[in-house]
Amino acid sequence: MEQKYIPKASLKAWLGKVRDDGRRLYAPVTENGKTSFRRVKSADEISMEHVQTAQSAKGVAFPRTERLFSYVRQPDGDVTLQDYDPSAIPDTVVFGLRPCDAAALKPLSGIFGWDTEDKPFSERMRRVVFVGVSCSRCDAFCFCTSVGGHPGSAEGSDILLTVVGDGEGYLAEIVTDRGRALVEKGGDLFESATGISKEDYLAEVPVRFSVEEVQRKMAGAFEGDIWKSQSARCLGCGACAFVCPACACFDIQENARGSGAGDRIRCWDSCGFSLFTLHTSGHNPRSTQSQRWRQRLLHKFCYMPQRLSVRGCTGCGRCSRACPVDMNLAEHLGEFEHL
């Protein structure tokens, strides 16, 4: 993989050039103590002091609410449809996503690309360049190394930056052609990099469990009591799913603007909600919170590996940080190992 070096002082100039090209730039911005991906007008707004943003960057490819098509009712009662228009999707650069978020693009793409292509997702993905930044710090919720990830993993990023030296610059690994094109925009701002090893500058994320063992035990625990004991305190909100970089469940809704026209939209949904699987008849195949917790874990750690050859978790720890009642995923996964 080609490597370059960019001094910290040049980074803003490079991102400025990237923006001048008409691309939208999304990057972490800190406000009221919470860091989130926002569209930024200037690189000065960017903050990289956080371990992890409150939300992942998945909204760039899978927005929380998105129009799938529109309909218009004609005076004669006929209905005409207006298809999803990808030309309205802006070219976008996401700067500063962590390797766990970049790794989550694979499971997301796995779900949206399963046998049939999901056009809104794929058209957005086609227009995004992901600039990852390695982790130099982690916290008690991080467990990327337990699920096959790494604080310096380049998987999913088009360019991966790692803060090196005493923080005076970044090692830039150019992963894809899209990444290369973006680096080329920077021209001379990027220097040659030799003899820099990013490994010296990465966070040490402890391995918390053997994921193979967890998956093996979990697959055999469908009827077990563990789901109930772990989820007793779960409140059944959707915080974990909505902050998760790999959760893709959605609802399809109608946004009718009067009786004449409207949009079919999709919006984020969560398997943790009690109504998610409720039939009109009143029957609910997953009627208790423990069944829904079981679905969440089995989907990510058994069904997805089985059906899509990818796990639905990259160890970012967001679900655990966001949970109002501290459902700590790494801790709960570890409990399966000892079943």
Partner: peptide
């Protein structure tokens, strides 16, 4: 505008 309707407020 930031709310994503996870309904944690309701659940808690």
């Amino acid at each position: 505008s930031k709310c994503f309707k996870c309904y944690a407020c309701r659940a808690a």
